[in-house]
């Protein structure tokens, strides 16, 4: 009983890096990658001229760029396939931390170019579209090494 009384206040302390449960960490990581994908989808629609919202381009590009800097932090120790069945991340994301950071940097650099292009007046959508493809290569490039092949 004494032990429980002592423990309870501890449980109320907000989660800190390292002591969140792996499934929650994975859910956050996957939702964050989902956010990256949404920014890419919207940017692609604008670049192809499907929608006229060129004014949103810079916001999406900045979001991609800032999230790329946070990306390595989405992989705390103990949140890999050994701890979660839901994650598609490969053990290499932890054993080759340097490679993961390099792949995140590639996204950061490619999205920085997208920011520049989105600031230009008049906006060159053909160049934006080509750069979206380049940013996309950094996404696919990292997945090749650090993410399990989808449904196969």
């Amino acid at each position: 009983m004494r032990a429980l009384v002592v423990l309870l206040p501890l449980l109320a302390v907000p989660a800190q890096a390292g002591d969140i449960d792996p499934e929650t960490a994975v859910a956050y990581r996957q939702a964050s990658f989902g956010a990256l994908a949404k920014h890419m989808k919207t940017t692609g629609m604008i670049a192809k001229g499907q929608v006229p919202h060129t004014g949103d381009l810079e916001t999406h590009a900045v979001a991609l760029n800032m999230l790329a800097k946070q990306l390595p932090g989405w992989f705390p120790e103990g949140t890999g396939p050994e701890a979660s069945e839901k994650t598609a991340a490969l053990p290499a994301a932890w054993s080759d931390r340097e490679g993961l950071e390099k792949a995140a940097k590639a996204l950061e650099d490619a999205s920085a170019k997208l920011i520049e292009l989105s600031k230009q007046e008049p906006i060159d959508l053909t160049a934006v579209k080509a750069q979206v493809g380049q940013v996309g290569r950094s996404c696919g490039g990292c997945h090749d090494t650090f993410k399990k092949d989808d449904d196969h």
């Binding site: 990256l36 996309g136 090749d144």
Partner: peptide, 23 residues
């Protein structure tokens, strides 16, 4: 539109991108 985004930029319908040889 999905096909043109893919063949043009490598983008999949959910905003993710292709890799592995296909890129």
């Amino acid at each position: 539109d999905d096909w043109s985004s893919f063949l043009d930029m490598g983008m999949l319908p959910d905003g993710d991108f292709t890799g592995r040889g296909m890129a």
